[in-house]
Design a protein around this nucleic acid. Structure first.
Length: 584
RNA sequence: GGUCCUGUAGAGCAGUUUGGAGUGCUCGCCACCCUGUCAAGGUGGAGGUCGCGGGUUCAAGUCCCGUCAGGACCGCCA
């Protein structure tokens, strides 16, 4: 190495040592006769002192330099207790510029905000910034820990193909033309789901992988077109086994990186309870304001809006003092979510109810309302009435908005839980809003809970899946299920879904074929690795823990991808070729 | 596909409500001064297609229409 020491490692005991440092000019303080340079490398930074005769005046921010000098304790009174290396400095004897830096598009040092656009275009400079570099290091550490945990549990790391077959999963596939077979296309995997099940047939028993997944859907703060899952599958395992493993993995990560001890075991909540109490399948349980079901309370209401299959309420503490404009704002908020509006009453200080809805309620309804919903004088109560699913969804979103606006969420808290017993099926709705059949909530290989094994096909609206999601602070970070391993049961699922034998055969015949050869009972889980790392680093977006992320339109400001292709490329790739008919 | 927010010097912003000369702030950049700073300090200087196009107007950063880019959300994402 061209250096002898790392700048950030120097301490008082190095005094008198001749050192060679190499790194970047983080800051310079030029006093004419004496020049101070903060020399930064991956380990941290140290102050280098230059005297008149040195050529330090020409050094500029982010020049890459090599410095030879002697470590010494700083003169009395010049220590900087805020820095790890603040007791010492390096008196430079020679400095060599290894490479110069052009003026920077944004400051590397300092805390001023920089637009994400600029950061992504110059991501390599952004990563020089300590906060971003730290996120990369934490992610790396998390990856080591995850590998260690999985190895300790006897899991085999297997890489599955990136160029694979388009399979009928939930999302749109990214497609890759195949020059050798013009007109035929690979798909990039949305997840290694089918491969990991095949590996169970293979008898590996315990598989895991940090798998890159690709989904061609619209992006969000917590979604990228390519993202990473830690993908896990185990044979002869029941739900409790997978859950225990998931807790072991997440527990080690939180303990080793954040020093936080997960409660063990983590609480579990059924999907039905989560929907009823929080209006969400990924409830943020860091605060209360739970939904209150009011359907029976308003069973005989004179208020037409509340004569609905479901009426629910959520309380906003202190919400009665909102201005008319703020209350109108809630209506706009609700409309932006596709609702008609958000009915509300205000519990005034004298206990009387205010707001436009109150006068439509009967006297008895008004009298008992505050007690029933748990509202105090000064609170506002929001209502949603209509279809159960849509109303709870609205109230759940309102609850989160209340939590944010009222500062009810304790950001220092970690609230993990499992959501279990999700429905197997949900109604498939056409454009007109009519039910045209059933669709799977998870994926078509998800097994039913044991008590539904024989009759889920007779009650698709009630049948529960043997599936589980891990939720942290209102975010789904992982999910999985015990799979179907019997052809007969799989066939019944296809029948509920209205998938013909022929169609199933053509779409994933290879899996069904594999399942003819003694498939073991198996199940697994996948964690959104980017989301996990985002939580571990305290980031706001998974882009914060991805070295080279894309923007919301799927554009990479650094490389400029994606780009148009030339006519020659188009022709050679066979983009427009007509496929030869092929059998599978 | 839809809703909302943002776009002004290399970076971060103010100015837009009520149209009147590119008006300003902090940082950075360049030159000079400066021997103990650590967000060093001082003096001077450079740097602008107000995202782009069109319209209204005597006059547009400011008002209107369109468009592009970034962000948040809805739909979508098993």
């Amino acid at each position: 190495m061209i250096r002898t020491h790392e700048a950030g490692s120097l301490r008082r005991e190095h005094a008198g040592t001749q050192v060679v440092l190499a790194g970047w000019v983080a800051r310079r303080r030029d006093h004419g006769g004496v020049v101070f340079i903060d020399l930064r490398d991956a380990s941290g930074s140290a102050q280098v002192v230059f005297r008149e005769e040195d050529h330090a005046h020409d050094l500029r921010s982010e020049y890459c330099v090599k410095v030879v000098g002697e470590v010494r304790v700083r003169p009395e009174g010049n220590e900087n207790p805020d820095l790890p290396t603040g007791e010492i400095e390096v008196v430079a004897s020679t400095v060599e510029v290894l490479s110069e830096s052009a003026p920077l598009p944004f400051p590397i040092e300092g805390s001023t905000g920089v637009s994400e656009e600029a950061r992504l275009k110059y991501r390599y400079l952004d990563i020089r910034r300590s906060q971003v570099a730290e996120a990369m290091r934490i992610r790396s550490k998390a990856t080591y820990i995850a590998n260690e945990v999985m190895n300790d549990h006897g899991f085999v790391y297997v890489e599955t193909p990136t160029l694979t077959r388009s399979t009928p999963e939930g999302a749109r596939d990214f497609l890759v033309p195949v020059r050798l077979q013009p007109g035929s296309w690979y798909a990039l995997p949305q997840s290694p789901q089918l491969f990991k099940q095949l590996l169970m047939v293979s008898g590996l028993e315990r598989y895991y992988q940090l798998a890159r997944c690709f989904r061609d859907e619209d992006l969000r703060a917590d979604r990228q077109p390519e993202f990473t899952q830690i993908d896990i599958e185990m044979s002869f395992a029941d739900q409790d086994d997978v859950i225990a493993l998931g807790e072991a993995l997440i527990g080690r990560l939180w303990k080793d990186i954040l020093g936080y001890e997960l409660p063990s075991p983590l609480p579990r909540m059924t999907y039905a309870e989560a929907m009823a109490r929080y209006g969400s399948d990924k409830p943020d349980v860091r605060f209360g304001c739970e939904l209150v079901e009011m359907t029976d309370y308003f069973a005989d209401t004179p208020f037409r809006v509340f004569q609905a299959p479901y009426v629910g309420a959520v309380v906003m503490p202190g919400g009665a003092s909102q201005t008319r404009k703020e209350l109108d704002g809630w209506q706009d908020w609700a409309k932006s979510r596709g609702a008609r509006g958000l009915a509300y009453v205000l519990v005034q200080e004298d206990g009387e109810l205010g707001g436009p809805v109150a006068k439509n309620l009967s006297e008895a309804e008004r009298a008992g309302l505050a007690a029933r919903v748990g509202a105090s004088p000064g609170d506002a109560v929001f209502f949603a009435a209509g279809a159960k699913i849509a109303s709870r969804d609205l109230l759940g979103a309102a609850r989160l908005e209340i939590g944010r606006r009222c500062g009810l969420i304790d950001e220092s808290q970690w609230a993990f839980l499992w959501i279990v017993d999700a429905p197997m099926f949900e109604p498939a709705i056409n454009e007109k809003g009519e039910q045209v059949g059933w669709t799977v909530v998870h994926h078509p290989f998800t097994g039913p809970k044991p008590e539904w094994a024989d009759n889920f096909q007779d009650h698709p609206e009630e049948a529960l899946a043997y599936a589980y999601d891990m939720v942290c602070n209102g975010m789904e970070i992982g999910g999985g299920s015990i799979r179907i391993h019997r052809a007969e049961m799989q066939q019944r699922v296809f029948e509920v879904l209205g998938i013909e034998k022929e169609e199933a055969e053509s779409k994933f015949g290879f899996l069904l074929e594999a399942f003819k050869y003694g498939p073991p009972p198996h199940g697994g889980i996948a964690y959104g690795w980017d989301r996990v790392c985002m939580l571990l680093t305290g980031g706001e977006s998974i882009r914060d823990v991805i070295a080279f992320p894309k923007t919301a339109s799927g554009f990479d400001p650094l490389t400029g991808a994606p780009t148009p292709i030339t006519g020659d490329q188009r022709k050679e790739a066979g983009v427009d070729a007509t496929p030869k008919p092929t059998g599978v």
